[in-house]
Design a protein around this nucleic acid. Structure first.
Lengths: 221, 221, 221, 221
DNA sequence: AATGAATGAGCTTTCATTCAT
DNA sequence: CATGAATGAAAGCTCATTCAT
């Protein structure tokens, strides 16, 4: 039974795939997710063909259905797997942080820029923006896993700044979106107009941060 | 598919459409655009079936092709018809305006909020954000007809404010996106999270405006 | 009622079409047939759009249905109107003819070449060959109006030749197709291969005639 | 449309096709070609619905697209598969042939009659004649694969006859169409008039051959 | 009579999903 | 488990035909 079968159909592939790796289930799962991420971000949900995903993942089309019940479930799995880890270590910075609010915002901005606006999660966020209204459960997940934590982080920074007397206005506590806005704006702007009127994300976000701090009553400049 | 069709075997209908209105051409054109706007914003570009658009417009499928050569042209026409007029009105305010920069921003914010963020162009802008990356020509049109004019308007307001000594920082001239950011953020936020953590658009934008003016060195507060 | 209507829709065309010509019914009928002949021979039956026929005829699409009940009837009318007159005067030559069979065949060949293989009926004959199997009634008409008369003419020529002792074999009486063959072959050949390996129709048919006469036991060469 | 479908709601079928034959790929390919040949010759290219082809082949509509990229490719494949092998066989006769030109023509006539004029390639040749003018590439293929080889074969026979002194006129070398003509004429005649005035193909072609040989200066009769 | 906008059945083609191997 | 050929429900689009004007 374990001997090579005399099957005349597949003359190659000396041993079956499962034998190559005890983790093949997880490996395949990850390969499919990676391929799907790539295709979904490239073409959007509707225009992505599972044929392409399967080919990119190196599996047969039917195999996808051994791992995910249907296209929508695959999409949701991709989003959930990709989007979650982004904020975890940004939040870890805060408790022990010693510097000023300005420095803290600068550090966190850098993390967000490099990891989101210019990094691999970029596509997923755009996908969320584009497809989210049609996938409410996914939007809720995204809010729970990412947005609510980001909002909490911003509030914490703002309250820390108020407590330290570095800012004097609570607008960012009431509307943390005020801090998120430039990142989202950069993301969307360049996804649409990168070839027409590209936005220098780093310069924009730094300028924004300075204006914002001053607007929030920063006392250090 | 989803709705039982009312057994349309007999091709008779009591009276035809053209009799109702001498302007039926324009009326039908508008009806199709309205139906398409509704369906596109509800389902997205790819998932919208022209059958549904036709039914919603009260015409036969083939009739769509008397008014628009294909699905993409219909989509583009919807975008053009819905979004373009909004900025014209806002821009018309500026030349003769007498009040302060703060008042001007307030007035224009109201226009944008009522006409875009909470108005009919809302869905189309979200659609642009969602589908734009896959329709570069449409993004270019949108930039040309809407964004570049909005940017010019913001720059004019900022320069007017600088000239009048009401603000002292040129950040909004260099990055007009700083003024657009809260509107876009509100739009996207509520499209995703309206049912989870709704954002009070009016309060947010007013707060943002105050912070922004202060950050730009406003001299009136 | 006869005054120019104050209609704001059609600002041109001072008087209606029917007023211009008392024969407009026949004129229009002929214009439609001519347009349809042109389009059918150009594109074949199925690929011809009645829209195009109407435009070429200078009438509205609905007008076609005032003259012909449907597309098939129009096609049949075109074929019948175009194909009938060809053979009538070729047959008129025979009774009083004085020359040899060779001369007679030459004269009639010229008529057929100039009128059919290179003339306006060319397209219709090809159409008959192409679409005939799907229009049996039309094939029967064609046989009745054209082919049976042509066959009778050939038989008469052959019998005249036998009677005059100019040929000695009755093959052309038994199989008049033997005389038709080169014309049909030329027609089909050039319709397919005119751009690849064109056939010199005139030289071919003359060569054929000489071979044929000799093969039929011609006594004059 | 024309036949009541057997109420295909339940997607189950007792056993699948691939189990019946290890060569199912080739079998299916052939089944599709055969079904397409049947439908195309019955209805012509444009009027043939792929739905019907699929049903006749016993496969689903989508399956056609696993074997052929589109309708035209299927059509071309039918032509290639049906017509090409016929001439190969005829041409294979020539090199070692020992008999007279008369006998050679007789043998080859039999092949052409049984395989083309009365055989399965009949419909395809008629289709080529009918649709060729609208498919120049297909006509070119047909010329390259069939006609040019047939022409070469005829020239070789004629030159062999001249060299052996069995015929004395080079007309068939200059115009090989002279030999093709009766086959094409039979084909077209019976496709149009089989039910009105059928042509006895075998008798016609034999008579033609005798007349032709005599006309070419045959020395054996 | 003439018009041409409107109709909708029908076409080719795509692709998520299934299932015999 | 994995495969990928097969499926068939839709989708976009066309065009012969109708009918209110």
């Amino acid at each position: 039974m374990t001997e090579p079968r005399p099957s005349s159909k597949s003359p190659k592939r000396p041993r079956a795939t499962a034998a190559n790796d005890p983790h093949s289930r997880e490996v395949r799962h990850a390969a499919i997710l990676a391929a799907a991420l790539s295709k979904f971000t490239e073409h959007g949900y509707a225009a992505t063909r599972l044929d392409d995903v399967a080919r990119a993942a190196g599996v047969a089309k039917g195999t996808l259905y051994l791992y995910f019940p249907d296209k929508q479930a695959l999409f949701e799995a991709v989003v959930k797997a990709t989007v979650a880890p982004v904020l975890s270590d940004a939040a870890a910075l805060l408790p022990a942080y010693q510097g000023t609010t300005r420095e803290l915002l600068h550090t966190i901005s850098e993390i967000l820029i490099s990891r989101i606006v210019e990094g691999p999660a970029r596509g997923i966020l755009l996908l969320m923006i584009a497809e989210g209204p049609r996938f409410p459960e996914l939007a809720a997940f995204h809010h729970r896993e990412v947005v609510s934590r980001g909002v909490a982080l911003i509030r914490a920074i703002a309250e820390r700044g108020l407590a330290r007397g570095e800012i004097t206005c609570d607008a960012a506590v009431r509307f943390p979106q005020i801090v998120i806005a430039p990142a989202m704006t950069s993301l969307v702007w360049n996804s649409l107009f990168a070839h027409i009127e590209p936005l220098d994300v780093r310069a924009f976000i730094q300028t924004y941060r300075d204006v914002l701090l001053r607007g929030l009553g920063s006392t250090d400049a």
